[in-house]
């Protein structure tokens, strides 16, 4: 009985805290509703959510509310709530690309400006103000351009894809497949890290290629974790890689550990996928000059030659192992 009372008490306290917070109304702040995916979704999302939190803060003049959920219908419900609350701007990164038409229209009717970030929605362009996205095809093209520029002949590449059918996988694989079709490179092994972009699966893909006696000199892994797994397979098999090695390795996403590996010459390159759309969006809002339609972010590719501490610090995501530390 005592326990139950205790729990009730805690609930009451928590509840009143929430009420109190909700009741707070500060004037002069720009009201923003953010509908996003939860940080557990990926390392990318962790950085993205964090970025939204820092930029859209009270200190920066915003009264922002966030809902982070993997469930599309919950997202839609949250968006509708924000519309009822009368926010000024609605920022959405949708779990699902479809099913949003009604919500977007009612936002428009209420005079709320909708800005999509990171993920596009299948709807008429008139239904939202702007979309700030990463161009996965561009990322792939840029990475392939780097591979082609390595001066290897022939280029025998192991492709390690992410979750099959995801936008990132389609864009990043597309560039490789096109180059292979054009005869510019050979794909000697084509595998996937599966739905969890798994390090272990990536490792197995490379191990299978080695076991089959495949000769290869490039590993193209569509995220950093999978690049790490691939390199673990090389290490165990005693195959050299990196700056002075036989196999050239490229990953995606700009995790700081990956960038440090590139910096140390353990890997060769990393392609950015920028989760920090908040600053740009904030700039649009503050200047009152919001573009319309789809805007792609500028994204970087860093190699052992171009990488610097400053760039790692500025653009990297997640924990930094420190200069010179290799994450194997």
């Amino acid at each position: 009985m005592k326990k139950i009372l205790g729990i009730l008490l805690v609930l009451v306290i928590l509840g009143s805290g929430v009420l109190f917070a909700a009741g707070q109304q500060e004037s002069g702040l720009i009201k923003v509703g953010i509908v996003n995916l939860p940080p557990e979704e990926s390392g990318y999302r962790q950085a993205n959510v964090e970025d939204m939190n820092t930029v859209f803060s009270t200190a920066n003049g915003y009264d922002a509310k966030q809902t982070n959920t993997m469930d599309n219908s919950e997202q839609i419900a949250a968006a509708k709530g924000y519309i009822r609350d009368g926010v000024d701007y609605l920022l959405i990164s949708a779990a699902n690309a479809s099913g949003w038409d009604d919500t977007l229209k009612s936002a428009k009717d209420a005079g709320i400006k909708v800005i999509l970030f990171d993920r596009a929605i299948d709807t008429a362009e008139s239904n939202y103000q702007a979309a700030l996205l990463s161009d996965m095809a561009y990322e792939g093209a840029k990475a392939v351009e780097w591979v082609l520029g390595l001066g290897l002949d022939p280029i025998n590449l192991i492709l390690i894809r992410g979750q099959m059918g995801s936008a990132a996988e389609i864009g990043r694989s597309g560039a490789v497949l096109d180059a292979a079709k054009a005869g510019k490179l050979n794909i000697v092994a084509d595998g996937t890290g599966g739905d969890s972009w798994s390090l272990e699966e990536a490792r197995k893909v490379v191990e299978a290629a080695i076991a089959a006696g495949k000769d290869f000199n490039v590993i193209y892994a569509e995220n950093d974790g999978m690049a790490q797994g691939a390199v673990q397979a090389l290490e165990a098999a005693g195959i050299t890689h990196g700056k002075d090695g036989k196999v050239k390795v490229i990953g995606f996403d700009f995790n700081r550990f990956a960038l440090r590996n590139v910096q140390s010459g353990y890997w060769d390159a990393d392609m950015q996928c920028n989760p920090r759309q908040a600053a740009e969006i904030s700039k649009w809002i503050k200047s009152g000059n919001i573009p319309s339609g789809i805007i792609y972010q500028e994204e970087l590719l860093l190699t052992t030659d171009t990488i610097t501490d400053a760039l790692i610090d500025q653009w990297g995501i997640n924990a930094d192992p420190g200069k010179g530390v290799i994450t194997r």
Partner: peptide
């Protein structure tokens, strides 16, 4: 786990871990 990690993916790049992992 994400909260325990301090909302980051901490790195365990040290010699002993490396030996345990390889």
């Amino acid at each position: 786990a994400f909260m325990i990690d301090g909302k980051l993916s901490p790195i365990l790049a040290n010699d002993i871990s490396n030996k345990i992992g390889t």
